[in-house]
Amino acid sequence: MKGLLGAAIAIALWWGATIVFDIDPFYVPSPGDVVETFWSTPGFLLGETWVTAGRVLIGFGIAVAGGLAVAVALAASRTVEQMTMPVLAAVNAVPKVALAPLLLVWMGFGNTPKIVMVVLVSFFPIVVATMSGLSSTPAELRKLARVLRSSWWQTFVKVRLPWALPQIFVGLKVATPLAIIGAVIGEVVSPDRGLGSVITGSGASADTPMAFAALVLLALAGVVLFYLVAAVERVVIPWSAAV
């Protein structure tokens, strides 16, 4: 409820600014202009939203599955973890935007390079959060596991993984907006369909309200995805909020 109120205030400020400063809609359209643009072609914009959302969901799904698998494999051994952490940090520091033209060269047009870009940007936060969660088991719980002579697998399933879940979800929440950014980067670099392509196209034809409409839809998609993850979190680890 408070979130909705905040959004309403933000929109009011935007609208107020366009009126008070008498901004030319060519540069910054008012919310009214944007809504009008949306209603003039709702099917078109929703279709493009769906294309982008599809790429985001597929890429994010791959990043989650791959990120969790890689993190678990790496956390299995302290040596492997210490060996790979610097490499991961280095790879993560490469600006993924800079790879977009290369992806175009390697994979051409179409869905693949966009999905790959989504995976690239959202994969690392998930890996890093999962690994740090798995290595944060408190000393007394590790000791308990030793006293009980619990096997590696038992300790992993009964102690380490559940303990890591809150941190894994932090990683997932960091990764959701990145996933959307990844899809848009892909679409801006090689426009075909999707909201990123709409923005590139409307920039070329100076159709600012259209670009803004696409931006608003991207923001909404980001909010929806974030709250989806948060909802899953509440189901999976209801104990975490209370602890």
């Binding site: 408190p138 007394e140 000791k143 303990w163 602890v243």
Partner: peptide, 9 residues
């Protein structure tokens, strides 16, 4: 132990 070391979940 000194800490209860219970699993919170």
């Amino acid at each position: 132990f000194q800490q209860p070391a219970l699993l919170p979940w």
